[in-house]
């Protein structure tokens, strides 16, 4: 049965795992007090981690010199735009 296999094959969303291991199963308390943020905060932090790894891989796959020169160029334009603005509107 495909339904039953979903947990047994461990093909289960990380969020489901965090939900039970961080918030449930509190039959008894331990000696060490470690306060872990709620499942939503931890999960969103992990999502950021996963997506930043994905972005890193993506940008490595592309020609990195093109990306950086484009970024540099846009930053330069923003800077010169800001400078000309401040010249027109002096303090």
């Amino acid at each position: 049965m495909p339904i039953k296999e979903s947990v047994e094959n461990k093909d289960i969303a990380l969020i489901d795992i965090l939900d039970v291991i961080l918030e449930k199963g509190i039959a008894i308390k331990g000696d060490l007090i470690i306060s872990i943020a709620g499942v939503d905060l931890v999960y969103l932090d992990l999502r950021v981690l996963i997506s930043s790894v994905e972005k890193l891989v993506e940008s490595r796959e592309n020609d990195s010199s093109v990306i950086s020169s484009q970024q540099f160029d846009s930053q330069r334009r923003e800077l010169s735009h800001a400078t000309s603005e401040s010249e027109r509107w002096p303090d």
Binding site: V20, I21, G25, I26, A27, K29, G30, D31, L32, I36
Partner: peptide, 10 residues
């Protein structure tokens, strides 16, 4: 009986 993540005793 499953326990919560990081239930640790001295």
């Amino acid at each position: 009986i499953p326990l919560q993540f990081c239930t640790i005793y001295k």
